[in-house]
Amino acid sequence: MSESRNETLPQRREVARPGADHWQPTAEWPAVRLRADLLRRARDFFHEHQFLEVETPLLSSETIVDAELEPIGVTIGENGENEETFWLQTSPELCMKRLLSAGAEAIFQITRGFRKEESGPLHNPEFTLMEWYRTGDGMEEGMGLLSDLFQRLMQTNPAKRLSYRDAFLEYAQIDPFEAEPAAYAQIATANGLAVPAQLGDEIDDWRNLLLLELVMPHLGQSEPVILFNYPASQAALAEIRNDPHPVAERFELFYQGIELANGYHELRDPHELRRRTEEANRQRVAQGKRLLPPSRRLEAAMRAGFPRAAGVALGVDRLVLLAAGKKELAEVMTFPFDRA
């Protein structure tokens, strides 16, 4: 091998973004119009239900601390002393909940979320979220409102409710609250799944592999499905109910195998919020990710008093994709990230 060959070894990121000549939008006009129509009808729905439309910062000093959500940091200031990192929000959750503590009763927002390195047919690092909260609601009411909205927007039947455990029992033949990693591995092998070499023995990593590969493809093939009662270890910021198997009062809507919305009966306890944030940061450090600032302002809001409430975030780009019968987000976004 000559010297020049050594220098031409593949470089990282050798595949470039499309050039400047790719200036056109990737969505066709009918999809752009469909998006506008869905947004208008969603606003109509929320106004009819006495929801107040609100706006909260996209760029904030705090961000959701989650082991598997990577925010994009923006550094403000010129020299080292004045520099401060702000975070493009992965969802408007923190600030919308502070509004609940400040007296809001029913609020919604249609805004952008940012998630670093999430790129794929159903992911774009910048995306549109519809997020709403209503006080007085628990998981049951939260699921009901989500089903009503979805039915209205997509002209589907009401969503079918399916517990996380029943979904795994039915489609993966495994009890997600009892099984050990070895049992998940066995199911994966029996179904011919390609198991990542470094999956390890985190039970939630195994649950998510089977969810993606074996469970999700079945969800919402006729009517939409709401999965609920998630494992307590996947509670994020949902209340945990102390059943024989403790479950998170968290729910997700799926349609045609695609995950569309995530909702919680909202956690209210500031001490538990701090405990979960610290735990998420511990997991982040163990995975070699950076520490994220604790959610001090939401903690303070919870100490001041946080009402019983349910909240949901719904991915608008995926909603448009399903309504338009498309396969990739680029077909329903004017300028996806590689043309942004």
Partner: peptide, 8 residues
């Protein structure tokens, strides 16, 4: 790229 909203 596939990822549950909350998950690996």
């Amino acid at each position: 790229f596939r990822k549950p909203g909350k998950g690996n």
